[in-house]
Design a protein around this nucleic acid. Sequence first.
RNA 1: CGGGGCGUGGCGCAGCCUGGUAGCGCGCCUGCCUUGGGAGCAGGAAGUCGUAGGUUCGAAUCCUAUCGCCCCGACCA
Length: 575
Amino acid sequence: MRYSQILLPTLKEIPADAEVVSHRLLLRAGCIRKLTAGVYTYLPYGLAALRRVDQIVREEMNRAGAQELLMPMVQPADLWRETGRYEKYGPELLRFRDRHDRESCLGPTHEEVITDLVRREVRSYRDLPLNLYQIQTKFRDEIRPRFGLMRGREFVMKDAYSFDADDEQASRSYQLMYDTYQRIFHRCGLEFRAVEADSGTIGGSFSHEFMVLAKTGEDTIVFCTACEYAANVEKATVRPPKARVRPLEEEAELDLEKVETPGRRKVEAVCEFLEIKPRQLVKTMVYLADGLPVAVLVRGDREVQEVKLKNLLGVVDVELAADQQVYDATGVPTGYLGPVGITIRVVADQEVAAMRNFVVGANEKNYHLRNVNLGRDFAVEAVADLRQITTEDFCPVCGGALGLAEGIEVGHIFKLGTVYSEAMQALFQDSDGLEKPLVMGCYGIGVSRIVAAAIEQNHDENGIIFPIPLAPYQAVVLNLSLKDAEITGAAEALYEELRAAGLDILLDDRDERPGFKFKDADLLGIPFRITVGKRFLKDGIVELRHRRDGLTEELDPAQVIVRVRELVSAALNQE
RNA sequence: CGGGGCGUGGCGCAGCCUGGUAGCGCGCCUGCCUUGGGAGCAGGAAGUCGUAGGUUCGAAUCCUAUCGCCCCGACCA
């Protein structure tokens, strides 16, 4: 393309509203413009990058035997009622009524639609396995959209759904997608990690997330330094403590004691006052689980992992109760809550069950209890792994040391089992003649988020550094003097010949000063820059500069064509 | 949802407190000049000051309502 003819509005100034680097650079490099909160227009250059990603995704999905289709964005509420998700999904699901007052919603995901399709069209095990996917715009009415393409309300997603005859076949489909995702993210030039994940509102039994490692990531992952184990912290299981097996004489249960702790509400203050460590205290957190209060007990220095709590309770939503809500539910001000004599449901982290003679709130203002013991002084409804893992914990698989990292979730795969097919009666006839529910899996990739994640991982102070497979143009040819016929002729010839060689090339034929063109070329992140200027007049030489490392080579035009082809194909073919 | 902030030519902002002429930088248009890291000079176009209502002789400015956008938080007792 000729720069003089395309809409590529680059910005010198840093947009005030953009917080993260990918958002700033996407705006500055003329890739996107905001229409309204969390909703963006992709300009030609940004769309070209997006197309690179979805082409890679498409090629790899097809290679894996998946078939592309396209489903509607507008979906009838009744379909969602069949799975109960019309009620369960929450405000992220944008609902509306059409002119006939029929309830509808904008698809945030497509399990219902695909299951409906397949239950109508697939009758026999002979049609299986089946994997269908689409690349389409999704809408999720996020609480707080932010960071440009990283968390938009409208975004482009690839979603795939597999249908199998039995669990074993479904596991193979899952593994095939796992491998395919590895290939996709690798081909996109991303540094990423597959981690075990919680299955969230999509439901199902087993799941992995693919995380691009970047400081701006909104997710935290934990990984083992010794083995291959890696998981989202929401999911990571904490090894149960062994403390309870210590001999009783060392840890004899002492007499319960009520102590005055005037004004000491925070763990730290109570510990300081009673001269104990946070690990000798149990804090009582009140959550509203689908609106109903539940007390959660964790050691004083631990944090409740809300996703684990949600899963234990089997509810859609948990949120920490506000002070007033706590008081309404228990009659006790926050800071003095405890499990002894409390009237609401109580669950405990497994670690609490291993503790002896700990401190809790007395359920009375300005008092705590000492030497409290689970079993003797109070009972709980359930003991489970409810706290967030820390780097003090050990790998649940091999016992090795753990590390934490931030990541951007770009892919998520789920083994769904038969939750949807049973709810929606998606059945097939197996070889034994019996009707059985289809065994499903679903697999998502945030296509637009990949563009943002790639920039988060590949940029410098001058702009984007696109990985070659994602670059809209592999090279830019700078004509530094439009007025000079010889330079212009050489630049034009290079442009034509590089295109003839099958490359996507941008020719900067704008009537601008050289500095301007250099700055834009850097900002746009085009991997290779070919400068035709004075050196060409003097020695017939052009400059080839590598965006990533600034390496420059001086070559004649014929050599440059060979060299760029070589560099590009090397980058695209390494797998 | 809670808290904070912001809406003024295309973009970034000043002006508002203390009502009276709407200003700056970038960009855009014309010309000259310049041409290897976002030049310079001269001239020019472009804003119902988010919207609605109110106060006033007079409102970007004061009051009320409303819409939109951004940021932070969402409580570890």
